[in-house]
Design a protein around this nucleic acid. Structure first.
Lengths: 233, 233
DNA sequence: TAAGATAATATGCATGCACATATTAACGTG
DNA sequence: CACGTTAATATGTGCATGCATATTATCTTA
């Protein structure tokens, strides 16, 4: 059975996609009901449903009960980013990974983070500064706060062998998080660490993760000059 | 029926998620077969299948025929970014949107783009420079190339009322594209357009879209200082 | 006629079943 | 014992059916 056969849900999806791309069904226009499509394609309604659900998930059609299915007016430009573990990203590029722990101590959470990262007032958090290398060239600079209430074992770990990121991924899985991307100028410290001219624009990522209501970690990663985060859509 | 009931596929998903988060099923470990889970939850295998498919899509479990389902070793740091139409993004923030077309002409494709954006050799492309404003403050600067072979009607459009982005979304839908994010320093031109000090780090996005094999447009958007692209994971 | 009750309808979902397909394990055979 | 064949098995998918649920259209009733 080939993919273009219309009697598999993927085949039906392909055909529906074609009709949308070829503007046979215009944006905003209502498309036939599941039952009608099922009859047309000579398959069960379930199968059409599967195809339509898939299109709805990718945002190409909008579905509402009773109201029917219509082609999305503004196909959301939705992209799935895969944020790799730095070591894996570097090794995938064929380079050798290593990291160096620049700093590790317990300290109160800095006031700027009080809003976003609500740990028990006055409790110390574990602070880590790490530099990630690819073939001995600096790749990314990391500043991380770990909530010891969420990961008490972290207090006794050095994080010189395994990186905090990898340890946390395996030992304190999160349920949800916030992620943001932005640009920063290399200041005094960053330019030294990342071997960049002072003032260079650097790509940065900030992430906070929670396990249910408990914040786990706040991490800010700043990449060496030239870094691009890519994806396909 | 509440979400936590185990006899709906979402309820089952919730329960499976709990077992993964609580490390009842460890990363890398194989979890029971669909049939066993169906029996345990007292539902049809199809329903368990639906829940597992959903978990697989979000990357939390890895499924292979015959081999079974196992908890992902490296829980995917996968994030879905929604790249909004700028006008909608600005209006959603409660600001007034307007844009101004700074430049519009036909020209050959610049050599740097020959690799990524393969239009017929020697053919002119439509070049647009646009500045997007939120409440009369510059919000983003856009440089765009449109392949006239993919969207011939664009040749006769002024793009002073409707933005090229919105027009293309509605009139030349793409099948796939490449997207990347990076940081740039504000040069002479950018600092003037975006009202930023020279050298300021700016967040930038580049996107190329195709309809099947035909390139449609190449766009580079550079945002005013302070811009953050956010998402939840 | 406006507001509220009621019916109609499209999608959402669960079930039981059958068969397809990929992958691994077991088995022969040279 | 290496290698190719075959069987076993877990997931993938399709179908017919029935009921659930959200939303709209229609029909009351004051």
């Amino acid at each position: 059975m080939s993919l273009s056969d219309t009697n598999s849900w993927k085949g039906i999806r392909t055909e529906l996609l074609r009709r949308i791309h070829d503007r046979i069904w215009q944006p905003g226009e209502q498309i036939p009901h599941e039952a009608d499509l099922a009859e047309e394609f000579g398959c069960a309604r379930t199968t059409v449903n599967r195809a339509l659900r898939d299109l709805a998930q990718s945002g190409l059609v909008v579905r509402k009960r009773r109201a029917g299915t219509r082609v999305a007016l503004n196909p959301p430009q939705r992209a799935t980013l895969t944020i790799p573990i730095i070591r894996e990203e570097i090794e995938a590029l064929g380079h050798t990974y290593r990291h160096s722990l620049l700093e590790r101590d317990l300290r109160p959470l800095p006031p700027v983070l009080h809003g976003a990262f609500q740990v028990t007032l006055g409790a110390d958090v574990l602070f880590l500064k790490t530099l990630h290398f690819a073939d001995d060239r600096p790749y990314a600079y990391e500043e991380r706060y770990i909530n010891l209430e969420a990961a008490p074992e972290a207090r006794d770990l050095a994080f010189d062998r395994i990186s905090a990121n990898e340890w946390l991924v395996h030992n304190a899985p999160y349920t949800h998080g916030d992620l943001s991307f932005f640009a920063v100028n290399a200041g005094d410290n960053l330019s030294r660490q990342l071997d960049a001219a002072e003032g260079t624009a650097l790509f940065a990522m900030e992430r906070i993760t929670w396990s249910a209501d408990l914040p786990i970690t706040h991490v800010r990663l700043i990449f060496a000059p030239g870094y691009r985060m890519r994806t396909e859509i």
